[in-house]
């Protein structure tokens, strides 16, 4: 098993390297370079040339890449050409917000998707099954920013139940940063007011984001439960006189949720990149909105860093999913 994990991890290195090469080349083979924007208002061509030299944009691209790679190995993702701050610092501020949001969105999606999927399987081909499929797929298909704005208008503007934007109320002192996950930090600091505030801020963005994952969780749960229901032990359990609800919600679900679990893992990566629109509308200070800002200002160091970080998260999630798979089914480990 240990050898399997090790091999799996070694596979990640060339993948990430390839990812870096791909994005770096793509971003840097631009028709323009950022020097002019960096040099500022009314810079003369000579000043722009000076900036170009200072930032090394006049070097051959492979040289620029070598320099960059060396930095990355030393965990230095460079300095943002827009903010002048180390990119690592900015991402460290923002990544936890996205992780917290994505995690809660997955929780929402699972909390809705697993029961829906189970019921859909139990009553398969019923009206409920059909209706739920349309609803969950509809959730996937709805434009996130449209739905988000409606949520804001109803729950924030009309009903006034939930905060409109942001991660914490303006002026509320934040707890000491330990994990930078506000929900965790506020509990660690024993500040329930902050916890409640952060939780309320999370509801609408997480709900919007969860729609993207709901359909596939419900679908995989349904498939898993349908599969398990065919198994012999279900028949034995029924024959032994167990209540049907107990069979389904305890034994069947436990056996079938495995397929959905891997799916949930894979969704984590997918949701992180679909967080972009959601974060923009709710002013959620995560790396999605950071990426948009970076894109709009052609801040290529920041774009590279986001790509790399998201790539690493994908890779980690994939490894975890594979390991879980291998633990459940030893044949997988052998085949690699």
């Amino acid at each position: 098993m240990g050898r399997f994990i090790l091999r799996r991890m070694l596979f990640v290195v060339p993948s990430l390297l390839g990812l870096l090469v791909l994005t770096f080349v793509m971003l840097r083979v631009l028709p323009n370079d950022p020097s002019a924007a960096l040099a500022g208002e009314n810079a003369t061509p000579a000043q722009i040339a000076a900036v170009r030299t200072a930032y090394g944009f006049d070097q051959p691209i492979w040289k620029q890449f070598a320099v960059y790679l060396k930095q990355v190995v030393h965990a230095d993702l460079g300095t943002s050409i827009v903010t002048g701050r180390p990119v690592v610092a900015d991402i460290a501020l923002r990544l936890p917000a996205t992780i917290e949001l994505t995690f809660c969105a997955l929780l929402f999606a699972s909390a809705m998707g697993i029961p829906i999927g189970t019921l859909a399987a139990v009553w398969h081909n019923s009206v409920f099954d059909h209706a739920m499929r349309i609803v969950t797929v509809g959730g996937l298909a709805i434009a996130a920013f449209w739905f988000a704005i409606i949520l804001q208008l109803v729950f924030s503007m009309s009903l006034d139940w939930l905060p409109l934007r942001g991660r914490i109320s303006v002026g509320m002192p934040e707890p000491a940063p330990v994990t930078r996950l506000l929900l965790v930090d506020s509990l660690l600091a024993g500040r329930l007011g902050v916890f409640r505030d952060a939780l309320l801020h999370l509801v609408m963005p997480a709900l919007t984001l969860s729609l993207g994952g709901l359909a596939s969780i419900a679908r995989f749960t349904r498939a898993g439960v349908l599969d398990t229901l065919q198994k012999d032990f279900v028949g034995y359990a029924e024959a032994a006189g167990y209540r049907r609800s107990r069979i389904i919600w305890v034994y069947v679900l436990r056996n079938s949720v495995v397929a959905a679990t891997t799916q949930i893992g894979l969704l984590f990566g997918a949701l992180i990149s679909s967080a972009v629109a959601v974060e923009s509308i709710f002013d959620w200070p995560g790396i999605g909105s950071y990426a948009v800002k970076a894109i709009l200002t052609s801040d290529y160091k920041a774009i590279l860093a986001v790509t790399l970080v998201v790539g690493v998260i994908y890779a980690i999630v994939n490894i975890v999913v594979d390991i879980v798979h291998a633990l459940l089914d030893p044949r997988v480990a052998e085949s690699l």
């Binding site: 596979f11 060339p14 993948s15 990430l16 390839g18 990812l19 791909l22 994005t23 793509m26 971003l27 083979v29 631009l30 028709p31 992180i272 990149s273 972009v276 990426a291 894109i295 774009i303 986001v306 790509t307 998201v310 790539g311 994908y314 890779a315």
Partner: peptide, 21 residues
């Protein structure tokens, strides 16, 4: 392996890069 690399690129960022190109 190349497939893995492409799977790991956030779609949005690749789209952006190609749009730049």
């Amino acid at each position: 392996r190349i497939t893995d690399v492409f799977l790991a690129v956030p779609q949005l960022i690749l789209a952006l890069a190609i749009a730049q190109l």
